[in-house]
Design a protein around this nucleic acid. Sequence first.
RNA 1: GGGCGUGUAGCCUAGCCAGGACAAGGCGGCAGCCUCCUAAGCUGUAGAUCAAGGGUUCGAAUCCCUUCACGCCCGCCA
Length: 566
Amino acid sequence: MFLEFWRDVEALLRDALDRCGFPLPEADGKVEGNELLLEMSPHADLASTISFRLAPVLKKSPAEISRRLQEAIVLEGKGTVDRAEAMGPYLNFFSSGRFLESTVLEAAADDCWTGSMTERVIVEHTSANPNGPLHVGHIRNSVIGDTLVRILRRAGCRVDAQYYVNDMGRQIAIVVWGCGRYPLDGSKPDHAIAKVYIQANKDLAAAPELKAGVDRLMQLYEAGDPETAAKFREKVEYALSGIDETLGRLNIAHDSRRWESEFVRDGSTAEVLKALEATGLTGWEEGSLQLDLSGQGFEKKLVLKRSDGTSLYTTRDLAYHRWKAERSDRMIDVLGADHKLISGQLRAALRLMGVREPEIVIFEFVSLPTGSMSTRRGKFISTDELLDEVEAQAYREVTARRPEEGEEFRRAVAREVALGAVRYDVVRVSPEKATVFDWKAALDFEKLSAPFIQYSHARACSILDKAGSFGDFDPGLLSGPEEVELVKKISQFDLAIDLAARELKPHLLATYARELAEIFNQFYRASPVLEADPGVREARLALVEAARNCLRATLETLGIPALESM
RNA sequence: GGGCGUGUAGCCUAGCCAGGACAAGGCGGCAGCCUCCUAAGCUGUAGAUCAAGGGUUCGAAUCCCUUCACGCCCGCCA
């Protein structure tokens, strides 16, 4: 679809540059992959501003360069391109009727939504400490991570979504220690663990001498004491079962878990330490092993081993990343902004060891109107609570709109609308923006939201359902402006996926989804389908089918259920 | 104090990395559209010195410098 059009335009433009004897603009290393300066434009299907770049080199006006290029373009054999026009300094390209027709045919056949990437990718996301439930800060990690997984799969990659289980940290030792003092009540496992964790922290704050008990647990666990290991394993698994349940409500599942203790037990953490010592940049300070990263631009030394001999999160993480590097072509970590510094140090240390560095997607924090969240202090809105509230609101909405439907239908719709609303609300904002959680916005199901997109899909389904089967169609009859716009937007599915997959920007797909739904709704309003004249009716039905398939593929890639009725 | 990030209409956000054709959406405001395929929809309208100041450029929301505001980090926590 659109990527093919893009490649055809590139070929035409390169060829024209050749004919004119014009050079490619200086590749200043920044324009990588787009030295022809092609961009989306409201004035064309694809536009180039290359003439501006060439003007000082050729000592000609941009308009003249565009005119010469247009004259030099030979369309022959490029079926997706209809024409090129020099519009002042700009060079505008327009897609052909044949391109639009084949887009409708492919999309209606529902077999054009997977790209051609083939890399093996490991995406690590969520990886929350198993010391309590996911809260509304964590879901940003989970939703961005899972959406990236889905986008990369859609692009063609083989993806392994991993949860890195922090079972060796102090937090977990505190949980295990706390469980020795307080029973877990019968509530949802992750919530029950949090209660003990919060109480244990209070105890420790009140009586700091108790800390020794926690330290001792950490040492025993690191040493591999079987009884301690069983306790840790049990509590962590218990918390994870609750976390998994919540993730399930969000339509998120990991393919595998890696426990950080694995990397201590199998000796790879020790190997990493050895490899780092071989760089000559490590040293012992006050009994702890530290790595000097000043050559990599980090002032602070990185502590690799505590003075009591136990390892630290970062050291184990280095072993984990070495493991991942050996098993993937791309590895991607989704991390909160608080990990910016440490992940930079991690990359620097990997560089020193000659291990490929991960691509890191950093997202800024979600805070409450009253301030930042904290599991330790019990100050958070849990994801479960959020989903419950949104679901209740969705239930009220669907009951008001579809009173004739049964309880089961309304419950099911409410659940899927709520899940979609929460996911979309998170994914639509670019990760580098800090956000403040807002109940009112979370419960708003209007235009800039998942239900808006789900609704478009349901409308398309409704039309197709009423139409039943229909015969051959001529896509050439789709010439109204709303029809053409819709086809063009459908064709851009592969572009949206490709861009989001290469740049790891899931919010680009959220934007695409909104635009697609919006254009479908405009088409819906302007173009009767079932009552259209024979011929036009079949063509429009095919377009509705194409749009339905595209909406469904887009929603699925966003992890949002594509409801057929709501 | 140092590092990183953010600042776009009353509110939330896209665009910024790869500078170019009128700064794009949503919420809220105002005005319309259901004898017609689901109105969770569609149409119109008002609302922006793109934080401030300087610079680079034929051209800056976008690049550079300074300042201000907010967030995060600077732990033998994760």
